[in-house]
């Protein structure tokens, strides 16, 4: 579809550097992600996870580097990409309905001035059904729970019918129903050959939910298939404070066995594993 060459990487990032007031928040990040992959971006607070997504999407000025989506610059491939921002980034008291928000996913395809019509609303309803929200289509968005807000945003991205999805913390503060719905959705997307990049916080579920993982702390610590790079040594480098940056090597085997050892607030939820 869309003339996609399966040989090319879905997302290829080279030397991406982003700086705020001369202080680098992302430093020389590389990534070559094959299509049809679910990838988690993990790292401590302030590691630049959201910044990475926003920089890839051109929402932030980049100091250096290049981003290719299926071999071409993002601006040429916009129609292939859908973005799910953090739920907390908008005012949910905005006077609008769930269906109206989801229909916004059609705005890009509609282009300038054209108003969404019946067809667009039907597509939005389909997307709402996929996330189990079709019965709430007419609800005012201020009356949604956190999980429902998240599913509304996901439905809006689904309407775009993209090939590459960027999701910023979709699991943040959602109920179990929503978490299951998101996981099912991710698998459905992968089965359809889509690529999904997710900013993720729960280290414990990384091997279960994702194929690939990028460990990020300003620099890219590691990126690759979960089995290869989700190691204690890499996690220690990512979360273990400044000392770990000097190249301390834990030398543990693959897998998430070492997750517990990483004592950061974000990793706290892994305590039970």
């Amino acid at each position: 579809m869309n003339g996609i060459d399966t040989e090319t990487c879905a997302v290829e990032v080279t030397d991406l550097t982003v700086a705020y007031a001369n202080k680098p928040v992302l430093w020389d990040v590389d990534l070559a992600l094959p299509g049809g992959t679910l990838m988690a971006i993990v790292g401590p607070n302030g590691a630049g996870k959201t910044t990475l997504i926003k920089a890839i999407l051109g929402l932030l000025p980049i100091a250096a580097g290049q981003v290719l989506i299926y071999g071409k610059p993002y601006t040429d491939q916009r129609k292939l990409v859908a973005y799910v921002p953090q739920r907390g980034s908008v005012d949910w008291d905005f006077p609008t309905s769930v269906l109206d928000v989801v229909t916004m996913g059609r705005y890009g395809a509609l282009g300038w001035f054209k108003r969404p019509g019946k067809d667009d609303q039907a597509l939005a309803m389909d997307a709402l059904a996929k996330v189990g929200m079709d019965h709430l289509a007419d609800r005012q968005i201020s009356q949604l729970s956190g999980g429902q807000q998240q599913r509304t945003f996901l439905a809006r991205a689904l309407v775009q019918d993209a090939d590459v999805y960027f999701m910023d913390e979709p699991f943040q503060g959602v109920d179990a129903t929503t978490e299951r719905a998101i996981v099912a959705l991710l698998q459905e997307l992968r089965a359809a050959g889509k690529t999904v990049i997710v900013v993720h916080h729960d280290l414990q579920t990384v091997p279960e939910y994702f194929d690939w993982v990028m460990l990020l702390n300003v620099r890219r610590i590691a990126a690759g298939p979960v089995a290869d790079v989700f190691t204690e040594a890499n996690l220690r480098k990512t979360y273990g404070g400044r000392v770990a940056f000097m190249g301390k090597n834990g030398g543990a085997g693959p897998g998430a066995a070492g997750v517990q050892a990483v004592a950061t607030p974000e990793a706290g939820r892994t305590g039970g594993g």
Binding site: G58, R78, V81, D91, T96, V101, M104, Y107, G108, R156
Partner: peptide
Amino acid sequence: KLLSFDRDYGASLGF
């Protein structure tokens, strides 16, 4: 409407 509700999302759509 897009600008008022979700500026970044609108930018990602290419507006």
